[in-house]
Nucleic acid binder design. Structure first.
Lengths: 219, 219
DNA sequence: AGACTTATTTGTTTTTTGCAAATAACATTT
DNA sequence: AAATGTTATTTGCAAAAAACAAATAAGTCT
């Protein structure tokens, strides 16, 4: 059976998270063409069948175009579709979300960053997309090393503790957190590297693995 | 910017799970047209932009066409894409997975059911899809009411216990399981309904909610 | 030297889990 | 009718994990 139906438009959109000033933020882009020209929106674009190997490659292309480098963590979020979501017609948007340490964005002129709880009105179904992305981020934070990808390569136990609290949105006991994280082996001490300040120096750690590690759970 | 690029083909595929004889199975369909005519494959088809409200509606249409009714649990799994996965060209397949109690399939002539660990060779990237679907099913089983959707509306604690063990693939302590499940409030007793046999009658339960309930976890 | 600040460890209490066994309730057999 | 078999359900206890509170450590700053 050959497809005799008019094919939908196929695009990718991206939710690019970072944490700035202890707040979860998203990178938005100002649309340069209609529809919704001039509005802030999630970075995205059509799939280029000639150059993109798959939709993930398309998302990487979009992200590189936006921030100039690859995100340390990228994952497919969900595919949004339907006749109503885009005025240009029945469309499919494969959405990816990425985590980007704020340190690597600072000073980047194209990075317009907004706290997720203070976003401007967004076009298309982008508010729905954001809601789903935040939900996924929060969910995965509770059982994986995900939040660590919001930190720079070196961080202290307290940095990690704080970023877990921020992404999950709940208080976590310090002693238990430390214990659990060390037991899980997702991070490793950097020998003889400490962060100093007007206080006792803090051990610096780094992720043991460049990829997300899920924790075990039981029912 | 109007899309000047050739648009990819857009289809949906479905992974329809059931448990038969204590084994996790998938419903396959025999392809009636090329490519791969005559082979067993995951049920799927092109999105019909005129009639389908979105890809989930398309998946429901495919499922109804296959088993004759709606699946009690349906969820988007992942979107597979690329130039190589379908000989007809650059394609996007939005894949959904569904859980269907075996009791509702028994006797259905169109239901060709195969254990997931004994599937025939599958066309396209369907083996990859199956792997991802099984992984998701197993994953969600450990922290949600998901496995209960493989059971009929009424079930005993032991039915539930067994189906959790089967989907997770590990032994679970009976007493702890019972305790945890009751504490979680995902099921409710059906007053005065018991399953009898050559033994003490077993209390019948039903799901408290028609939708999947995730359990709380902490890091 | 003493105050101050954050890091890290320790101890105790409380809550969950794992395991083993006892008890319950029926059908079937003797 | 009593004994037996079979699965359901509860109980008790030991072990492990988590929550909470507080002490101690190791620097800087005044």
């Amino acid at each position: 059976m050959e497809p005799v139906y008019p094919q939908p438009l196929v695009m990718v959109d991206t939710a690019l998270f970072t944490i700035r000033d202890e707040r979860l933020c998203l990178i938005l882009t100002r649309r340069k063409e209609p529809p919704f020209e001039g509005l802030l929106a999630l970075p995205g674009g059509f799939v280029h069948a000639q150059e993109d190997a798959d939709t993930e490659a398309a998302a990487r292309r979009v992200i590189r175009g936006k921030i100039g480098f690859d995100a340390p963590y990228l994952e497919q979020l969900f595919t949004f579709s339907g006749a109503a979501r885009d005025p240009r017609g029945w469309s499919v948007s494969v959405v990816y979300y990425a985590l980007i340490p704020w340190a690597s964005l600072e000073g980047n002129p194209s990075a317009e960053v907004f706290p997720v709880d203070g976003l401007p009105p967004l076009p298309f179904d982008h508010e729905q997309i954001v809601a789903k992305a935040v939900e996924r981020l929060r969910g995965k934070a509770t059982y994986s090393s995900l939040p660590a990808f919001l930190l720079p390569a070196e961080f202290t136990m307290n940095d990690l503790h704080r970023i877990y609290e921020q992404t999950i949105g709940a208080r976590l006991d310090k002693a238990s957190f430390r214990h659990k994280i060390l037991e899980l082996d997702i991070i490793e001490e950097m020998p003889n590297r400490f962060r100093t300040g007007a206080h006792r120096p803090a051990q610096l750690y780094r992720l043991s693995s460049k990829v997300l590690t899920p924790f075990e759970r039981k029912i």
